[in-house]
Design a protein around this nucleic acid. Sequence first.
DNA 1: CTAGAATTCGAACTATGGTTCAAATTTTGA
DNA 2: TCAAAATTTGAACCATAGTTCGAATTCTAG
Lengths: 232, 232
Amino acid sequence: MVQILNLGSNKLASERVRRKYEARQLEILHAAARVFRRCGLAAAGMREIAEEADLSPGNLYHYFSGKDEILLFCQDRTLEHMLAAAKAAQRSAVPVAEQVRAVMRDHVHCMLDELEGATAHLEVEALPEELRKPVIKKRDAYEGAVRALVAKGMKRGEFAPGDASLVTRAMLGAVNWTARWYRPDGAQSVAEIAQSLSDYLVRGLGAAAPSTRAAAPSTRSARVAAASGVRK
Amino acid sequence: MVQILNLGSNKLASERVRRKYEARQLEILHAAARVFRRCGLAAAGMREIAEEADLSPGNLYHYFSGKDEILLFCQDRTLEHMLAAAKAAQRSAVPVAEQVRAVMRDHVHCMLDELEGATAHLEVEALPEELRKPVIKKRDAYEGAVRALVAKGMKRGEFAPGDASLVTRAMLGAVNWTARWYRPDGAQSVAEIAQSLSDYLVRGLGAAAPSTRAAAPSTRSARVAAASGVRK
DNA sequence: CTAGAATTCGAACTATGGTTCAAATTTTGA
DNA sequence: TCAAAATTTGAACCATAGTTCGAATTCTAG
């Protein structure tokens, strides 16, 4: 994401001030993510983001070129996270069914946990053509990774044969949709939702039932650690 | 939908002109639906809707109180359609699995066929609180109908036991998501998509295979195995 | 045919929200 | 301590898009 986000850091000052600058950038981005999550993307105004980040509206433009760039970061960060999770699952030594389940669980966590402004990643259309392209590319890469897992399972006979592309989109739709109906004060936890949902989605692939679960680093800390390690 | 949409038809003129008036209303609504579908809801401006419907921007307000009312209609119409399909499936004398498949197929058709502006039904947040309420209510009714079908299937043992509410939301997410990725010039037809998707979604319920087999679910041992270890 | 109603137009109004900017304040580095 | 750089402010700018309005045109009906 750093590649995309090379802000106007041309005339770099001393190291010390640069650190502070980038730290403040991150604070602002987290604040923005919170606002995106609270209200929708459309309803989130610069003035509101500014207030959430404790600075004046105009000052936002000292750190970002505009709203688009802020949104771009949120989307990119979310996709980067999910992509890393998919790659990690791909490498793990568990049945494909469990790999897919892991990816779906991670996706749900990414959507519903408070940390990121992941809901913003659903509204790619909001970006102007220019900025949209790299996001689309990354999103396609993620979808491709999931599809590859599904296809692998089908090829190995672990899943019933079928249209991997269509089924992948169905699964992604189901998990993305959670952002619409999930309420933090609901009956079940995010982990429970992630578990049940991924079980259902993989069952539709015609896989065997999840073996009495033993494998897969499904603890939250493990996932976060794995994901953050990828980020540079 | 007529109840909600009782436009300013207070001082009704002659029957003849009223017919014409309402016909023009429908034309406009269809045009709006087309624009909603083409661009997103956000990008669809009144001026663009006006052009699509072959009248001036200002003239739109002779037929509707504003953009909200137009959007309200599209959402209401779509939901009414889906609700009717759900009710119809409920009454049909086929296995529950096939009932659910029928509802999902209808839902997909409703989303992807050119006739309606169904994509708009996904953006309920765009409406002001006042108008939103009845739409939410109808949407909940539809979701409830689907959930009832799923629960019935579970109760009868035709589906594996599970969280009917969660699974229903997953299914609806998958079908709603089609509006995001479907392209009319794609490889497969809407009907094919609807078929494959509904098959996949119902398969995840632990039902018997679609057409080839009769209503009787698979062997007891298979069902038990499928349900084991998953649920909370 | 003609008066009144219905329809249509398009320019102008207005509210919203992203953005700019010049000046004030704070921080940095020597 | 002081000058230059960095940060911050808040008001103002401006573009978009929903909406209003009065006048012009067309249609209906007696």
